[in-house]
Each structure stands twice: as structure tokens, then as C-alpha cells.
Write a protein that binds this DNA or RNA. Structure first.
Length: 308
DNA sequence: AGTGAGCGG
């Protein structure tokens, strides 16, 4: 049934105004120290992670004139109005010298700099929150279409991974996949399950923990509880190469991400577009995390068939 | 200990 949408908590700080692409280079944050302490003569960290490049993990920009972003991890009260208000200051007209912080409270703008345009963003063309057809409940994701592709790109670069105005969780943004008939990457994923994650681990941190050593890393996801906006303490890392997936399961088990050693296992099969199977259900017992380098799924499947 | 509610009209 329809729930009355409660008024969201008044926005706190909006993310700072966009800068074109480059975040100021900063030294690696604490989470970058993710391997067990190694006696390591500095100063050149030869880390397994690559330095952050653009800010946040995301798909490569899709070709063509896609101007729509996908937004996920929405809570039930996050409706179109709320989402629009999140990007209220992303438009050109509000550009400041880059250090100003403006706020939007109950529809009015308050800023340290003169506001040069109305309080709704001229950059956002439309917002759509996906709801369950039966219950009307927010499904947890939506689409934000921008007037220009450049505007979408800027928002993706600057907002993704930054706190949402309720302060409880971060924006999860990405390019919308299908907006112009584009197809998703159809190459198969080889995924590992990563447990025991510390509370501060983000998608990006998790991805970077692996990417320096495994070049085929396609992405990482930390699972967020939709009710609380907080991490569930586990996540997934996807590889393009099965050999790297298998290597990572042994090499990275116990390695640090943020403040805690990760516990790694094979991911149970999540349905993928290609219908690609990873490990048949029931194989988990056969796949000890520690023995995996010696066997592959192809070797296990006949074994399981023989046993059942 | 926990295996992703991540793609519409």
C-alpha cells in the first residue's frame, strides 16, 4: 500500500560544487593500508592498489548521448523531490569559486555565495524512482536524466560515493545501462564473496584493494542494508578472468581492507545476463577457499554429478 | 555470521 512519504530530514551539507573531473590529488587515506603490515622501506609504496583516478568506481562512460544516471540504495522515503533536491546545486548557474557551500532547506536556498539561479537544478531533466507496481513501495533505485551528458558526467564524478543529504549513506550512482539501447557488458563475471568487511569499506575501497594486483577486476560491491543505509559487512568482487578470481581467493584471504582482514570465499551464483554459471549450487562444500588454486569449477562439476 | 532487491517507460 502507499505509504505517506515522510519529510526527509532537512538536508545538511550538500557535496561541494563540482570541479571538472579531477579531485585534488591527496595522499592515500587510511583505508589504503589494507595489507597486513609489511616491513616496507618507504617512501615509494608499491601497493597492490592503484591510486584513485577519478574519484569513484563506475562503469566507463557509455558511448553516445546517454544523459541518464542510475541511482541505487534508495530508502523508502527518497522520492523524486528529494532526489531532485540533492542535485539542486549541480547546475552551471550556481557555479561558485568552488569552495562555497550552499544549502537547501525547505525549498529555500541559503548560500555563502549569491544564488544565480532558481533552487531547482536546471541540469536535471527528470527523476524517476522505480516503485513496485503492486505495493507502490520504492524499489530502491531510480533514474536521473540530465539536460546534457556533461552534466550527468559531472554529477557522477562529484556526487558518487559522497554522503547523501541525510548524512546516513553515500550516493550510489552509475550510468544507466539501457537508456539508449546500449547493452551491458556481456562478458562473464567471475565473482568472489568477501566477508568480514569493516564498516567504512566502500565499493571503491574494495575494488582498489584488488585492482592493483588483479588487472581483470571489473567492479566491487559492498552490500548495503536498505533500512539502515549501513554496510552488511560483506560484498563481492567481480573479475573478468577466472584464473585471477581463483588466485585472489587464496592470495587475498586474510588480507586487510581498511582495518580488518577479509574472509574470502566463492560467490554463490547470482543470475547474470548471460546466464553464466559460476559454481553450481551445492558445490560450496567442495570448494574450500584454501584448496581452490588446485581445482577449477570445470573439474568439480563432473565430481558433483558423480556424487548426486 | 552475513551470498547483491544493480537498470524503467
Amino acid at each position: 500500500m502507499m505509504q505517506p512519504t515522510p519529510t526527509p530530514p532537512p538536508p545538511q551539507q550538500m557535496p561541494h560544487q563540482y570541479q571538472y573531473q579531477q579531485q585534488p590529488p591527496q595522499q592515500p587515506p587510511p583505508y589504503m593500508m589494507m595489507m597486513p603490515p609489511q616491513p616496507q622501506p618507504q617512501p615509494q609504496p608499491p601497493p597492490m592498489w592503484a591510486p584513485p583516478q577519478q574519484g569513484q568506481q563506475q562503469q566507463a562512460a557509455p558511448p553516445g548521448e546517454i544523459r541518464t544516471l542510475w541511482i541505487g540504495d534508495l530508502q523508502y522515503w527518497m522520492d523524486e523531490n528529494y532526489i531532485s533536491s540533492c542535485f539542486a546545486h549541480s547546475g552551471e548557474g550556481n557555479k561558485t569559486n568552488g569552495s562555497g557551500i550552499s544549502r537547501r532547506v525547505r525549498g529555500r536556498c541559503y548560500g555563502l555565495y549569491p544564488i544565480t539561479q532558481p533552487c531547482f537544478s536546471l541540469q536535471v531533466a527528470s527523476v524517476k524512482v522505480i516503485r513496485n507496481k503492486q505495493t507502490g513501495q520504492v524499489e530502491g533505485y531510480g533514474f536521473v536524466e540530465f539536460v546534457t551528458r556533461a552534466a550527468a558526467e559531472r554529477v557522477l564524478q562529484t556526487y558518487n560515493g559522497t554522503p547523501m543529504p541525510n548524512g546516513e549513506q553515500n550516493f550510489r550512482l552509475n550510468w544507466a545501462s539501457f537508456s539508449a539501447g546500449e547493452r551491458r557488458d556481456e562478458t562473464p563475471d567471475f565473482t568472489i564473496f568477501v566477508g568480514d568487511l569493516a564498516a567504512d569499506v566502500t565499493d571503491y575501497m574494495l575494488q582498489e584493494t584488488f585492482r592493483g594486483r588483479y588487472s581483470s577486476v571489473k567492479g566491487a560491491k559492498v552490500v548495503i542494508d536498505r533500512l539502515t543505509g549501513r554496510t552488511k559487512g560483506y560484498g563481492f568482487v567481480r573479475f573478468a578472468d577466472e584464473s585471477e578470481q581463483l588466485r585472489a581467493m587464496t592470495e587475498m584471504n586474510g588480507a586487510f581492507c581498511s582495518t580488518r582482514p577479509m574472509r574470502i570465499g566463492p560467490a554463490t551464483n547470482k543470475k547474470t545476463l548471460s546466464g553464466q554459471q559460476q559454481y553450481p549450487k551445492g558445490c560450496q562444500e567442495a570448494l574450500s577457499s584454501w584448496g581452490l588454486e588446485l581445482i577449477s569449477a570445470e573439474m568439480v562439476i563432473p565430481l558433483v554429478r558423480a556424487l548426486t
